[in-house]
């Protein structure tokens, strides 16, 4: 490869949750445009280890853009400059020789830093646990064709269900709100006939669980949807608010 690059990475290093962190500068040479961003970190880590220094900790797993593990803020943007692309699928051909690149973890009170670029996103699992499911214990299901689902509803559910739970929406939001994540899960389930019976309690319980974590409120900025690597549309938030109002009014009436 003739067009190898030399890059300067300024990487957030933090030894533990309660320790102070700082940006530290590293140079990585011979970066091929065909490398993914995470492979550059691999190269850096091999060099650090060879020098006896501790490698940069970062979350990653499938490296195909679907597991949602990777969580890097690159030059101020969650997952970096390429739209609808996770950091693991971001390739170095989008950078130029001599670039200085900042690499930071998700920044949100609800996502405390564990080490370096690794954060704790357990809050997202707890929001799902509050109602992000359909109660259908194993064995209780009716025949699959017993309830037809209109194609547009199925397609809308799928679009919302494409969320990978990475948390980029939270990292992008100036308020660190988890509205897009929460609303996407509610939309996925509430739009399906199977999800209808629990639609009201789902939205009330999940929003309450979201509020109980350290997420901020939504002020309709829309940065979440712009940062979302899976293109979850911002409308799901509007729909969640509508579902919530309806459910709240009904529950007040019924004294729930």
């Amino acid at each position: 490869m003739s067009d190898l690059m030399e890059l300067t990475l300024r990487v957030w290093r933090q030894p533990g949750p309660d320790a102070d962190g700082e940006m530290r500068t590293y140079t990585v040479a011979d970066v091929s445009p065909d490398m993914s961003f995470l492979e550059v970190l691999d190269v850096l880590n091999e060099e650090l280890a060879a020098r006896g220094e501790e490698p940069v900790a970062f979350d990653h797993d499938c490296r195909e853009g679907i597991c949602g593990a990777c969580s890097l803020v690159i030059n101020g943007e969650p997952h970096g400059p390429q739209k609808r692309t996770t950091a693991c699928q971001l390739h170095m051909r989008h950078f130029a020789d001599g670039d200085v690149i900042d690499v930071e973890p998700w920044r949100a009170a609800a996502f405390p830093v564990v080490r370096d670029l690794v954060v704790d996103r357990g809050a997202l699992d707890r929001i799902v646990g509050a109602g992000g499911y359909i109660t259908a214990p194993t064995g209780s299901a009716p025949e699959a064709h017993a309830t037809p689902v209109a194609k547009d509803a199925a397609d809308e559910a799928f679009t919302a269900a494409a969320c990978i739970g990475c948390g980029a929406c939270v990292a992008a939001c100036p308020n660190a709100s988890a509205m897009l994540f929460t609303a996407a899960k509610i939309k996925h389930l509430n739009v399906l006939p199977q999800g209808r019976p629990e639609a009201g309690t789902r939205v009330l319980d999940m929003v309450a669980a979201m509020d109980a974590e350290d997420f901020g409120g939504c002020t309709n900025v829309g940065a979440c949807a712009t940062a979302c690597p899976k293109g979850i549309p911002v409308d799901v938030i509007t729909e969640m608010n509508r579902d919530w109002l309806k459910a709240a009014a009904r529950s007040r009436k019924s004294g729930r």
């Binding site: 359909i134 699959a144 194609k151």
Partner: peptide, 21 residues
């Protein structure tokens, strides 16, 4: 049974215009 179970859970399988899988 797997397909039945997954549909009941809300897995958004691809569907035909008639609403069937």
């Amino acid at each position: 049974q797997i397909i039945d179970q997954c549909v009941a859970q809300g897995v958004p399988f691809a569907r035909e215009y008639g609403g069937l899988l």
